[in-house]
Amino acid sequence: MNWIQQTGRHTLERVAACGRAGLMLFGALFAAPSLKNIPLTIRQLYVVGVQSLAIIIVSGLFIGMVMALQGYTILTDYGAEGSLGPMVALSLLRELGPVVTALLFAGRAGSALTAEIGLMKATEQLSSLEMMAVDPLRRVVAPRFWAGMIAMPMLALIFSAVGILGGHLVGVDWLGVDAGSYWSIMQATVDWDKDVINGVIKSLVFALVVTWIAIFKGYDSIPTSEGISQATTQTVVFSSLAVLGLDFVLTALMFGIE
C-alpha cells in the first residue's frame, strides 16, 4: 500500500509543479508589458547571450573540425569528398547547431539563471520586491525569459556558421578538398526553409523549454543552500533530457514524412 501511496503522492507533486510552472510563465508573459522592462531584457541578453559566445564559438569550431575530419575519411573511400560541405552544413544546421547549443546553454546560462533566482529568493529579494509592490514575475522572470528566447536561436546560428568554417579549415585547408566544391555543393544542397528555418524553429522550442525550466527551478527552489544546489542540478539534467527527447519529436515532424 505504501508503494501505491508514494506513487500517487509523487504524481500529484509533479502535476502540481507543472501547474505552478505554467502559472509562473503565464504571469510573466501576460502581465501588462512595461517599457521599463526593455533595458532589463537587454541587460539579460548580454548576460545569457554575449557571455555565452565564447563557449559556443569554441565548441562550434571544434565540432565542425571533427566532423570534417571524420567525414573526409569516410567520404574519400567512395571518392565523394566533394560532398563534405553539405554533410557538415546539414548536420550542423539541422541537428548539432540547435541541440548542442541548447545543451551548452543549459549548462552555461540555465544553471546560472536558476542559481541567481534561487539566491534572490533565499536572500528575500523576491519577497522584498513583492512588498514594494513590484511583481517579481515581471521584474525578474520575464526579462530573463525573453533574453533566453532571443539569445538561443542566434547562438545556434553562430554555432553552425563557426562549425562550417571549422569544417572548411580542416577539409579544404588541411586535407585538400576543393574549396569550390565545398561551398557550391553546400549552396546547392542546403535549403533555406527546410534546413535553416527548421533549425531555427528547433532552437526556439529548445529556448522555451530550457529557459522555462531554468527560471521555474530557481523560482520554485527551496531557499536553502541545499535546495538551490539541487535546483541547479535539476535544471541541467531536466533541460538536457527535454532537449534530446524533443529533438527526436521535432526531427520526426520536420524530416520524417517526406
Binding site: 528575500e124 519577497s127 522584498s128 512588498m131 514594494m132 509592490a133
Partner: peptide, 19 residues
Amino acid sequence: LYHNRRRMSMLFQSGALFT
C-alpha cells in the same frame, strides 16, 4: 493589494538589498 503595498513597507531580516 499592490496599490496598498505602496503604503506599507517591510524591513527584512537580511536587509534584502538588491546585490
